[in-house]
Design a protein around this nucleic acid. Structure first.
Lengths: 334, 334
DNA sequence: AACGTGGCATGCAACGTGGCAAGTGGTAGA
DNA sequence: TCTACCACTTGCCACGTTGCATGCCACGTT
């Protein structure tokens, strides 16, 4: 097995080049020659050598996805869409995780490229805009989320300001006025958290509800445990809270868990809204009201960006900033 | 950028071969030469060309993970461990999903190999043992789960019979006697489901509880929705059920959801146990009692198998069947 | 009969790297 | 002074593929 073009060519009595033409199907080959070669291909079980094609053609057929954590439901659901969308474009998806570590993030950001992958889909966590701008080679790259790199890089994201405002307005529409936000990340260059906080504040301001910094809870990570801890802090402080907008569903699920542990009823005493529309939220008790980004559209848009950049290499056109639709899904928790 | 050995060699005033020696660090190079070359490497920002190395050396540094769904929490958590374990061995992980489609499964099983990846980690869903045995090239391969391919392929799995029996015995120890099982898959060549059913039956038999086929519910997939539907069928039938062992946590979470919808209290009226120990279970209401497989150990074992096979290619030694430890985690649901 | 054309097939070269074995220059010992 | 040896360096080749340019042949035209 592992026959190469030369062996197939010998067997079919033609040149290597002709076999290559048959395999790629593009060049001009006489029908009977084509058939003879095809038979040899089948008999020997020929499979194109990816390494040689990569070396010759400069394309690996690989796209890297660099994210904080693949085990996080939002990212694993997104990865599922990306794998499918990539397959439709004859790409395969390489998954790398940074574990939220800036050093690893920088290393992967620099390292995965180097002719290994055709493109890079990066969800930055701690990298600063300055880090991001430093794109040493011409590897096409798309950023997920709103990192505000001065519009120099392709971005795909929902409008976090609008979405956060939508969620907050919904909580306001329920008559809640003591609304907290969980998920601020002032210590990170994380445009996403900052923009969700902005949308939250805007909606409160619109409704004439005074901002209360004590109700804006920062978290280190976006795990359930962080949401639970934040909720616990909020409740144990004793200040009135009748609703909470969490910047991710994971945070929201953790927050609901902490509320349940303290006997606080959701949604009666505490309305909870999340962000991401992960599957768990649909089965939580109560089911989670959330902002649903169109994940399939994100995947499609990201790959389209890469494909476009790749088509005209080196394409140094203006960065694209693609905004993806979102929906407010009202369920049981708010 | 994208300098190659030749350019570095020209700059350093040495031969390509010497630069290669410096880069790989293995051969004999005079200290001052090494330093000079190193400077040229740094100045030009040299990065080894993955394609050329792959072509020359036959190793791509890639391992493929072929699973039904990356969005499924069990698999995404496992993938997280695999990415980390792979990185420790200088491998990168390529993720492919079959969506439970036998045709795609077969295609990926055959197709990903072909010199593209150094190894294959496969979690078969619908492929028959006969399909699995047909390993056309020598690409090292590890199976996750118990597919019973006559011991011809490397396997890594927990002992599903023992684990299912452990979970069932726990339900029995609570005094429950009307115990159902959700997750049978008689229509698939799925050794895992079959073995969990076997363990379930064994534990019942040990306790002298008669087997009741009507309490063994089959499912098509392992999603929450399947668990919810199965639970609904079970409850709506009106036959007494005071406990249920689900073959996955996703099924269990769905089942708990369906129970809650019908006002059935867990664990008072219905004890629920799952399998997989996914993160959601730790935050469900009530928290989910489950069998916890050591996922990190699975990841390590799978990669070790691949590495061993790869080290002595073509290693046609006997297949290894590695059994991974599991623990029963007793939490709120049972 | 010589020529041009178009359909098809082929040889050469190169992508960047690393194994192999030979080559270089210098030093120590005979 | 010659040789043997050592430490270091190098040229050549092959991995499998595809772009390019060219070769060959048959057929129809002039």
């Amino acid at each position: 097995m592992a026959a190469n073009l030369r062996q197939v060519a010998d067997r079919a009595g033609v040149s290597v080049r002709t076999v290559s033409n048959v395999v790629s199907g593009f060049a001009l080959v006489a029908p009977d020659t084509r058939e003879r070669v095809q038979r040899a291909l089948d008999e020997l079980g020929y499979r194109p050598n990816a390494a040689a094609r990569h070396l010759r053609g400069g394309r690996s057929g690989l796209v890297a996805l660099v994210i904080p954590e693949i085990a996080s439901p939002y990212f694993s659901e997104l990865a599922a869409h990306l794998v499918r969308a990539a397959e439709a474009r004859s790409w395969m998806l390489l998954v790398q995780q940074t574990d939220g570590d800036p050093e690893r993030e920088r290393r992967l950001f620099d390292g995965v490229r180097g002719q290994t992958v055709d493109g890079l889909i990066l969800s930055p966590w701690a990298l600063s805009p300055a880090d991001l701008r430093r794109n040493p080679d011409a590897t096409p790259m798309v950023l997920l989320g709103e990192q505000d790199a001065d519009g120099l890089l392709d971005h795909v994201a929902v409008d976090s300001v609008a979405a956060a405002a939508d969620a907050t307005r919904h909580l306001l529409s329920l008559g809640r006025r003591s609304i907290a936000a969980i998920g601020a990340q002032p210590h990170l260059h994380n445009g996403t958290a900052a923009r969700r906080l902005l949308g939250f504040r805007q909606a409160l301001a619109e409704a004439g509800v005074p901002a209360d910094p004590a109700r804006e809870i920062a978290v280190d990570r976006l795990h359930r445990a962080d949401g639970a801890a934040a909720m616990a802090r909020l409740l144990d402080r004793g200040a009135p809270v009748d609703a909470v907008f969490c910047f991710s569903d994971q945070l929201a699920l953790g927050a609901m868990h902490a509320a349940a542990e303290r006997g606080v009823r959701v949604p009666e005493q505490l309305a909870v809204a999340g962000f991401d529309d992960i599957e768990d939220g649909r089965y939580a008790g109560p089911t989670l009201t959330t902002i649903s980004p169109d994940k399939q559209a994100i995947a499609e848009a990201a790959l389209t960006c890469l494909a476009d950049r790749l088509a005209r290499t080196p394409y140094t056109g203006p960065a694209r900033r693609i905004t993806i639709d979102h929906t407010l899904l009202v369920r049981g928790s708010a």
